[in-house]
């Protein structure tokens, strides 16, 4: 199971069926604080860098950008009523959406787990 990361603190996991699941890291949820609202994207294609989600914590709103170009196939509807899942299990039940990358190689250009660990320590 390949996991990749972005400098915007998203994680991407390549599933067995070639679909990529996207969420935010534990570091990111901790920095944001308690989430009270998550606005998820529409089911369509987005280009890398396009805004796809909005996270509102008790403190502030933050935008989530599409990490790599592709088509969003499924969103985690449970977050509408239970945004706290992102805080409780950012790499599990707190996932945001599943997508099909436009370019399957794009994932390889992102940070590895080690690179990300180094990045957040810097």
């Amino acid at each position: 199971m390949v996991m990749r990361f972005t400098e915007e603190h998203e994680w991407l996991r390549l599933e067995a069926d070639g679909i990529v699941t996207v969420g935010i890291t534990d570091y990111a949820q901790d920095a944001l604080g308690d989430l009270v609202f998550v606005q998820l994207p529409e089911l369509r294609a987005y280009a890398a860098g396009e805004e796809v989600a909005v996270l509102e914590s008790v403190k502030a709103a933050s935008n989530i950008a599409m990490p790599i170009s592709g088509e969003i196939l499924e969103i985690n509807e449970a977050l509408s009523d239970a945004p706290e899942k992102v805080n409780q299990a950012p790499l599990g039940a707190g996932w945001f959406f599943r997508m099909r990358p436009a370019d399957p190689e794009a994932l390889g250009t992102l940070l590895s787990e080690n690179d990300y660990a180094t990045f957040i320590k810097a």
Binding site: G33, D34, S57, V58, K59
Partner: peptide, 10 residues
């Protein structure tokens, strides 16, 4: 202090 480990909601 803006928050402690308990977090703002709790």
């Amino acid at each position: 202090p803006v928050q402690y480990p308990l977090g703002v909601l709790k």
